[in-house]
């Protein structure tokens, strides 16, 4: 995670270029610039838009954590876990779209929403067999099991936002690691801020 924002831009640029050439293969990354509704140059056959099934957006018509109404129990996870298992994953494709959280919070901050939107947009034209894993992580300042629950709550908050953006809830699973998998060592805010994160993994179909 030491990748600089400059490198991120390069990755984005490359992805856009690839998309622009109408590559017939799987898109190499979520091509839209975060926040912009640029169409993804998908494989051209199986792109599908999923109608929103979440709670819907509030007046501002912009998905943000305000749309997650307190008191709701949350969006249940798919009961058939076997559907997600034994499939290859690609963590690189969404590397630049990791969502970061404030200390001890699980709401998706307004400045992080564009990354979630880009992932949602990517799936609107991704092959039907592609699904998503969201990993939830925490910094070292909470206790082990508290963090395991908080990391899950973070992943679920991102998942709910994605469903409100139109991604089917049945395509997303969550895995919390609490503070067991930090990306940055050290005991300062610099390291902590990098570790409080929601990471996306593309889940590929079994036969590919």
């Amino acid at each position: 995670m030491k990748r600089s924002s400059l490198v991120n831009l390069l990755v984005l640029g490359l992805a856009l270029a690839v998309g622009g050439f109408g590559c017939k293969h799987r898109p190499k990354g979520p091509t839209p610039i975060p926040g912009q509704k640029t169409a993804v140059a998908g494989p051209g056959t199986e792109g599908r838009a999923t109608p929103p099934i979440g709670g819907g957006l509030d007046k501002d018509n912009r998905p943000d954590s305000e749309d997650l109404k307190p008191g709701q129990g949350g969006t249940p996870l798919p009961s058939d876990r076997g559907y997600f298992e034994g499939r290859p994953t690609d963590g690189k494709i969404f590397e630049a779209y990791t969502v970061y959280f404030d200390y001890d919070r699980h709401n998706v901050k307004p400045d992080q929403v564009a990354k979630v939107q880009a992932v949602a947009d990517f799936f609107k034209s991704a092959p039907a067999g592609d699904d998503l894993v969201i990993e939830g992580h925490c910094d070292e300042r909470g206790t082990d099991e508290y963090n395991r629950a908080l990391g899950e709550r973070r992943a679920l908050a991102v998942r709910e936002m994605l469903t409100q953006m139109g991604l089917a809830a049945g395509r997303i699973r969550t895995i919390s690691y609490g503070k067991d998998k930090p990306v940055a060592e050290g005991h300062s805010e610099d390291a902590w801020s990098k570790n409080r994160r929601g990471q996306f993994l593309l889940l590929l179909p079994k036969d590919k």
Binding site: G74, T75, P76, L77, P78, S79, A149, E152, L156
Partner: peptide
């Protein structure tokens, strides 16, 4: 279950287990 399954705690009589699951969405 899909999601988090953790923090098992067995009752003093050994007949029940309390745990944390997130399958319901939280």
């Amino acid at each position: 279950y899909t999601g988090l399954n953790t923090s098992a705690a067995v009752s003093p009589d050994g007949r029940r287990v309390a745990m944390i699951l997130s399958k319901g969405g939280s």
